[in-house]
Design a protein around this nucleic acid. Sequence first.
DNA 1: GCAGTGATTTGCT
DNA 2: GCAAATCACTGCG
Length: 233
Amino acid sequence: MSTMQGTPGFDSETWEIKNISGRRLPRAFYEDAPERVAPRLLGKILAYRGPHGLVVGRIVEVEAYLGPHNTPPDPAAHSHRGPTPRNRVLFGPAGHAYVYAIYGRYFCMNLSCEAEGRAGCVLLRALEPLAGLDAMATNRGLTPGAAAKLLTSGPSRLCQALGLTCAEHNGLDVTRADSPLQVLDGGYAVTEALVTPRIGIKEAVDWPLRFVLHGHACVSGPKSFTGRRVQLS
DNA sequence: GCAGTGATTTGCT
DNA sequence: GCAAATCACTGCG
């Protein structure tokens, strides 16, 4: 808490960030199917108050992973064989961070969805950096002033930029006011998204569950995708 | 640009 | 023992 006092534009009591709507998303936001929660997360704000100060980004790319109750089950989801010690967060209440280690050196972060007892989540794949860019660059092993796209374009890049790890952040309830990790309404109406297949998986590769802000410079992967535009209410 | 590949830990079968 | 929701570096065109 005290480390953030003096951060320009940041109110540590309300999480209001200057020029950004700081209203925290309630648990009910997440208590729905991942394929519906995922596009609604586009344009929202991820904020982390950690040892390097306040780091903030706008969510520009996500993927939905469906729970084992889905028909057919999502073979690419960590939860598809039921609860295990690793994925237990996914079967708990919605609105919790599921952070896992991958390929030995990286982490990925998800937000759990669905009511308690049902697993389903949204993988955060890319952010547009908004605050704490120098800290992000340092965390990523880059020099301050590095291109924004190199900071948080990719699921493990964004974890590295924010300093998120399985040991420290898995299971955090992002709907609690005292959580160091917050998801905030960006005050930014997203009316259209591009839907594409998911990236980096070998099962159910053609399921249209990746959602991006079309044309945003901070989206990961190739510039052109086979996808379709969808209107968001 | 882009395809190929090594790094290296964790969890599950 | 192996596969993994990845990244960055290399070499080649």
